[in-house]
Simulated assay, not measured.
Amino acid sequence: MRLSAFLAASLTATALASCNAPRQSQPAVEPPQQSAAPLSFQMPEGSGCSGAVSRYKAVIENDLSMGHVNQSVYGQIQGEISEAAAACSSGQDTKAISLVRASKARHGYPGG
């Protein structure tokens, strides 16, 4: 019984000592080389489907210019934006907004 009491005390002391061990510092995170958008970038205003289409188009064009989206994905998204814009201009607001949301979700953009 003495051996198990000694062993338990030894393990407890080891566990407590490890709690007091100095923590290793984390490496500093380097700031990004480019911001997500240039300071001159202005999000288009507007409401309804025309505003949603305009804002999504502006974000995609900015992402292309910043190198966050390659040309083939940009082309695919542009086709999806065109489809949403056509629905919007024909008075199908709900469908247009739905198309924008589906495209955002498909390509990993927030608000999809």
Rank of each mutant, 00 (worst) to 15 (best):
F41C: 03
Y56D: 11
P22S: 13
Q42I: 00
G51H: 04
A37S: 15
A21L: 14
A17Y: 05
M66V: 01
S47I: 10
L16G: 12
N20T: 15
A36M: 10
P38G: 09
N62V: 06
N70G: 04
K57L: 11
Y56L: 06
A58W: 04
E61V: 04
P32A: 12
Q33M: 12
V73M: 05
A36E: 14
V53Y: 03
L39M: 12
G67L: 01
V29N: 13
Y56M: 10
G48E: 13
S25Q: 15
G46K: 11
P22N: 09
Q24D: 15
S47H: 06
S35Q: 09
E61A: 07
C19G: 14
V59G: 03
Q71K: 05
P44G: 08
G67V: 01
N70H: 05
L16K: 14
A52Q: 10
P44H: 15
A58R: 05
G46M: 03
N20D: 10
L39C: 13
P22Q: 11
N62C: 07
S50L: 12
E61H: 05
R23W: 14
L64K: 04
Q42K: 13
P32R: 02
S18W: 15
Q26T: 15
L16D: 11
K57T: 07
Y56K: 02
S35E: 08
G46D: 10
E45R: 15
V69Q: 04
S65N: 05
A17V: 01
G51M: 09
S72W: 03
M66F: 03
P22D: 14
V69S: 02
G51K: 07
G51V: 01
A36T: 09
S47M: 11
F41Y: 14
N70Y: 09
N62W: 04
F41L: 14
N70T: 02
L39D: 15
M66Y: 01
N62G: 08
I60V: 12
S35R: 05
R23S: 13
S72R: 06
S18K: 13
E45L: 10
